[in-house]
Design a protein around this nucleic acid. Sequence first.
DNA 1: ATGGTCGTCATACGA
Length: 262
Amino acid sequence: MSIKVCTWNINSVRLRAPIVERLLRDEAPDVLCLQETKSPVDKIPVEVFADAGYAHIVARGEKGYNGVAILSRLQIEDAGSHDFCGKGDARHVAARLQNGMTIHNFYVPAGGDEPDRDKNVKFGHKLDFLSEMRDWFTAEPPTRAVLVGDLNIAPLEDDVWSHKQLLKVVSHTPIEVDHLAAVQAAANWQDITRQHMPEGKVYSWWSYRAKDWSAADKGRRLDHIWATPDMRAVDGSSRILRDARGWEKPSDHAPVFAEFHE
DNA sequence: ATGGTCGTCATACGA
């Protein structure tokens, strides 16, 4: 038996309920983590997901911005969230499943356009958010845990279409990559996607602004699946469903998958 | 160097 995990920045859960349903039907993950739901929790179309077999849902939400949700076929034993940077925004939710594994679902701040915290408070917020993640996982080291989400950072050269051209572009600057590496080191998080796909370009996001996103293929790997070393991923189970970027009324992100042994 | 496209909520702002 294995557990199939999926993470997807959906950019409005209400507008895209039809393609969420399609993903659940086509791919049947055991757990689906959504980011940028952009909806108050009580306006998430939970009946649609329950009818599709995902009756166990925990979410955090606000009107119009941010928002994270965990949809599960398995019973959720416990749930929680942490308010990183004390802003009361909806960027983290966690659930412990009946098999004892904990899943953390994050939506890390995008950080604005200017990669300088003295000129751009959004960039400062992003770096501070990552530092708090590092400290939080250092203070309470997780076990049997999976961390997923839109981390809004593409850390490796092959996580972007042009390493050289993106070195000063928010999402691929050295200071962000360093901050993300510190989060990763805090709990010895393993990058499951790159364990399974160590070579070559891998992307999970393509801008809406490109004329032909697929032909231009100027993507970035912003969405991640990490796990603590005591979790056993199913060899080669990582995938990115690039096709979903071309579905009707798509998100600008594609779903990312990995499977774990029970 | 600039603008290109989305979603939400209100016609600006964040991504």
